[in-house]
């Protein structure tokens, strides 16, 4: 059962066995886990990533029900539901695919993905994903007064009203700020140099290509 080999046995000076540490050990990643599942993640506010598997057991149940030809000749697709605004769209997928990157139009929403087959003009949902909250990617205009609370006793100490805040925001974001519906657009880029340079925590340490010089 064990797919490892013992190559090295360190012996104590007194000839007693002390360690049994394998110098060589090799594992291959399992091809699949044979479980029916689909998971949904976001890569960016406008790009989702879904990965899935349909177990042999479940496939066999559908084959038994609909017949081999109807099952394997059916169209396979991902059904993406935006739970925030109720919009739904489908993406045809290769039946051998196990994952997919999905472009979306609206950030800051709740999404669900289902892996489906269209069998005899009926939609069969093979697996349904987690509900995913995607990031907001813009400055949001407040719709209510801004509350300042004392974190020690939870009391509201003061409020900046909607009327006052615009003045304050312009002081921070600059006069060139444009206010467009619910979104406020600053006049400069918000990205930090670490983001631009593909550098991040701890990991700068390993980024041998990045030079300070």
């Amino acid at each position: 059962m064990n797919n490892y080999a013992i190559y090295n046995i360190n012996i104590r000076k007194k000839k007693r066995r002390r360690h049994l540490i394998m110098a060589f050990e090799y594992f291959d990643i399992p091809y699949r886990y044979n479980e029916t599942k689909i998971y949904l993640l976001f890569q960016t506010p406008l790009m989702l990533f879904a990965f899935w598997d349909i177990s042999d057991n479940d496939e066999n149940k559908y084959i038994e029900k609909f017949g081999k030809d109807a099952y394997f000749n059916s169209k396979m697709y991902l059904k993406i539901t935006n739970e925030t605004n109720g919009k739904v769209f489908n993406i045809d997928i290769n039946p051998f695919a196990k994952n997919w990157y999905i472009q979306i139009q609206e950030p800051h929403c709740k999404y669900i993905a289902e892996v489906c087959r269209s069998i005899n003009n009926h939609e069969i949902s093979l697996a349904s994903s987690n509900t995913l909250n995607t990031p907001n990617n813009k400055i949001l205009m407040p719709k209510q007064n801004l509350k300042f609370v004392n974190i020690k006793n939870q009391r509201t100490e003061f409020v900046i009203t909607i009327n006052d805040y615009e003045k304050q925001v312009k002081q921070y974001f600059g006069e060139n700020v444009s206010i467009n519906g619910d979104v406020l657009k600053p006049s400069y880029l918000l990205s930090n140099p670490s983001s631009q340079n593909n550098i991040s925590s701890g990991t700068r340490y390993f980024n041998k290509e990045d030079s300070n010089g």
């Binding site: 890569q43 990031p135 593909n198």
Partner: peptide, 8 residues
Amino acid sequence: WGANGYNE
């Protein structure tokens, strides 16, 4: 704090 601010 990764490139472009999300999970890429």
